[in-house]
Simulated assay, not measured.
Amino acid sequence: MSNAKPLILITNDDGITAPGIRTLIEVMKELGDICVVAPDSPQSGMGHAITVNETLYVDEVIMDKDATIKEYSCSGTPADCVKLAVNEILGRKPDLCVSGINHGSNSSINVIYSGTMSAAVEAGTQGIPSIGFSLLDYSLTANFDPVKKYVKTLAQQALAHGMPKGVVLNVNFPKLKEEEIKGIKVCRQANAHWIEKFDKRTNPLGRDYYWLSGEFVNEDKGEDTDEWALENGYVSVVPVQFDLTAHHAIKDINNWDI
């Protein structure tokens, strides 16, 4: 890899063979040298889990005809992939980390469960400008072509300007044709939540098991949120901070009798 070009780390949570990451690779090849380190199997909903009680394996794989692209499949989580890439594989800190393109939404409260975003956050904690990309289409046959130009634009801007300290970007794309997407909105995360439901069943051996399902409820009527942007045909960009301190609550907690 040439140090004259930006070094871009690419990862995801849907696995190294997922169509979304192949699209991300196609776009990032135009911007710099790339290295792919991604899970060897789907890791959706893993959040920021890391592997501490099992061994980790990394294998170099050939997924692309372009011999200049180095790709590695990892037995661990998305956060594991970033840790291994930075500390063992790349040889230097990348100039940008991009994660995705996820099959399905990571807007609003979904960001805290997302393996896609946790990979970006892990890179961000190491001072690497990072972006997580998601498309609101869960299908394995999802069409990522309409969002390529937005992926490229945002990556170019991140390379040119860097990222505010302690911040990564959570980018979600509406499921629309390219000509139907109205542009980009920088937003706040909508105040929404899931009403969880568990489908309880019994297996042939008589043991109960559960399937998690639920209903997404958006109680936020603001027109400055990611949910509003997506519902109205915009790409949503939410700056996410990984300092979880609720600074506004410190004064109140200090008034407790403790």
Rank of each mutant, 00 (worst) to 15 (best):
C81W: 09
R207A: 14
G47F: 10
I253G: 09
G166N: 05
Y209R: 01
N170R: 09
D145W: 12
L159Q: 02
Q241G: 15
A4D: 13
D59E: 09
G206W: 09
Y234T: 04
S114H: 10
E26H: 10
N106F: 00
K83R: 09
A38Y: 13
V235A: 04
D226L: 05
N143H: 06
I109R: 03
K5V: 05
G100Q: 08
G124S: 02
H247C: 11
G162M: 05
L212P: 12
K182I: 05
L31Q: 06
D80L: 14
C187E: 04
D64P: 00
D252L: 15
E215N: 11
I25T: 05
A67F: 12
F242Y: 13
N203S: 14
L7V: 07
K29E: 10
T68V: 10
V147S: 01
R207Y: 14
A18I: 13
K70Y: 01
V27N: 10
V171Y: 02
I128Q: 00
V147T: 03
N218I: 04
T11S: 09
N191V: 15
W228T: 04
L230G: 06
K197H: 15
G206K: 08
T141G: 15
H193N: 13
P39T: 00
C81A: 01
F198K: 10
V98K: 00
Y57W: 09
P239D: 05
M163P: 08
M63S: 05
Q156W: 07
G183N: 00
S105K: 08
K197W: 13
I10D: 07
L24F: 12
G166S: 07
N3C: 09
S41A: 08
Q189K: 03
P39N: 11
D145T: 14
Q241W: 14
G214V: 05
S73I: 12
I25Y: 04
G233M: 09
D95C: 07
T125Y: 06
A120F: 08
Y57N: 15
K200P: 13
G166M: 08
I184V: 01
D199E: 14
H48E: 12
E26A: 07
M46R: 04
S2T: 11
G183I: 07
I258M: 13
P146I: 03
L96D: 05
Q241T: 15
G32F: 02
A123D: 00
L96C: 06
C81E: 07
A67M: 09
F242C: 06
P164W: 06
H161S: 14
A85Q: 01
V36T: 10
K70A: 05
V121H: 03
S108Q: 05
V147H: 04
R207D: 12
M1H: 13
E231L: 03
A142L: 12
R201K: 13
F198M: 15
L159T: 04
L230Y: 02
Q156S: 03
D95K: 00
A190C: 02
M117Q: 03
V171H: 01
K148G: 03
L24K: 05
V168Q: 01
D40V: 11
G222K: 08
Y57S: 11
L176G: 12
A79M: 13
W211D: 15
F242N: 00
